[in-house]
Design a binder for these strands. Structure first.
Length: 376
RNA sequence: GGGAAGUUCGUAUAGUGGUCAAUUACGGGAGACUGUAAAUCUCUUGCUUCGGCUUCGGUGGUUCGAAUCCAUCACUUCCCA
């Protein structure tokens, strides 16, 4: 993996860069659609590539490990081949599941034991086993095993959790260095800053993460329910410490406004289920604001879905038609909304990049973010 | 022609003397969703100037009190001719 900063915005901490992986070139800032189990829900690969123009998508180690399982992925020759996606892939480690499946797991120094949400069977993830699993998956970016702390979270818990995450990281880095990619191309290993909403813990964590000298770094444990301002504050603290010449990935974020604010604070990579999940639930993000397609007001609005949209669904379908499909609970509604939202997110980061490069980002961002988050 | 059952808030239903403006589902309206156990979840759904008001096919009655009991009318469904 290689990262070059093309331009740094003098007015904010935003940067426009270029990441190169074995699976292509990624201009940053970038948004990465989430494809947990080897599928961006409701969107097939050709749409992802040709209509949405995603450069990189996510997979999830925990979910892929349970299903289809590593045996199948090894036989397939890795996830890229299995799902027939020749662009980049980043895999989350299962750290988010340590958080979201809290009732079914137990954390120890060694690692974390899970009960499968599918059949209740018991499994253990260690920092080492996760590296091995991600080697089999063959992701371009492998996330380290961490604990994504919940919110609210006491200082004591956050501090203790951070200690474990750091211990796990040191072992993961060691194992990463001792192992080789299985498919002949480079795989980056990303450490994750934790520390909940506590500034001193975030500083401590960012320093430790920076000291690992990995190719890129991530910030986790945010957008889990804390106020947005708290999140922005943590990003600023952490990005003041993480090396400037390496990509910074803010995990699980977020709304269009969150992304704009994140970029302004020096984030290069984002992922979030919001465009797909909210899309499936009838919500559209547009440059003019958000739309709830279930709302009665779209009933006889036969105008095109999003006049400013960049994907074909925006001009091919009407608001009234999508409202009908959504209310009728037709699967096509989820597909159209997911394609629209992902295309919007990718167009958003593209516009952010363009504005960083032409110097209009700082003046544009507040008004644009505000508008995008209004309900229309 | 004879016999039986039924009529409840958009629809289908629950409710068989006071705890009933009335159950549940669907339908309708709105909201939520942030490294996906989510095509999910939540709220709301007679009117209201929030004091109340008017509702359970119509009318009349019994009763302190009726969606619930009685009479009658109307309508609906089923069975036998």
């Amino acid at each position: 993996m290689n990262f070059e900063i093309a331009y740094s915005d003098p007015k904010t901490n935003a940067r426009a860069g270029v990441i190169t992986t074995a699976h292509g070139v990624i201009e940053t800032p970038i948004f990465m659609p989430v494809g947990t189990v080897g599928s961006v829900k409701g969107v097939h690969q050709r749409e992802l590539r040709d209509d949405i123009d995603a450069k990189i998508i996510l997979g999830n180690t925990y979910h892929l490990y349970l299903r289809p399982g590593m045996d199948i992925l090894r036989q397939a020759g890795g996830l890229h081949k299995f799902i027939n996606w020749d662009r980049s892939i980043l895999t989350d480690s299962g750290g988010f599941q340590v958080f979201s499946l809290a009732e079914n797991r137990k954390i120890t120094d060694k690692g974390v034991t899970f009960r499968s949400h599918i059949d209740g069977s018991k499994h253990i993830f260690t920092p080492e086993s996760v590296v091995d699993t991600e080697r089999i998956i063959g992701s371009d970016f492998m996330m380290a095993l961490d604990e994504c702390t919940p919110y609210p979270c006491t200082y004591e818990y956050a501090a203790k959790s951070l200690e474990i995450t750091h211990k796990w990281l040191a072992r993961g880095v060691k194992h990463y260095k001792e192992t080789e990619p299985l498919y002949g191309y480079d795989q980056a290993y990303l450490p994750i800053v934790q520390g909940s909403v506590y500034k001193d813990l975030r500083i401590k964590s960012a320093e430790f993460i920076a000291s690992q000298e990995m190719q890129a770094n991530a910030i986790g444990g945010l957008s889990v329910g804390e106020p947005a301002e708290k999140m922005y504050e943590m990003i600023e603290v952490v990005n003041g410490i993480l090396p400037k010449d390496k990509p910074r990935y803010l995990m699980g974020v977020g709304t269009p406004a969150n992304i704009i604010e994140g970029v302004a604070r020096g984030i290069d990579m984002f992922d979030c289920v919001m465009p797909t999940r909210n899309g499936r639930n009838g919500m559209l993000f547009t440059s003019e604001g958000t739309m709830n397609m279930k709302n009665e007001k779209w009933k006889n609005d036969f105008s095109e879905l999003d006049p400013n949209g960049t994907s074909f669904v925006d001009h091919y379908y009407s608001k009234a038609y999508l409202r009908h499909l959504t209310v009728a609970n037709e699967r096509l509604a989820a597909q159209i909304a997911s394609i629209h939202n992902l295309a919007f997110y990718l167009a958003l980061v593209k516009e952010i990049r363009r504005r960083i490069l032409d110097g209009t980002f700082a003046d544009w961002k507040d008004g644009a973010a505000k508008k995008m988050m209004e309900r229309i």
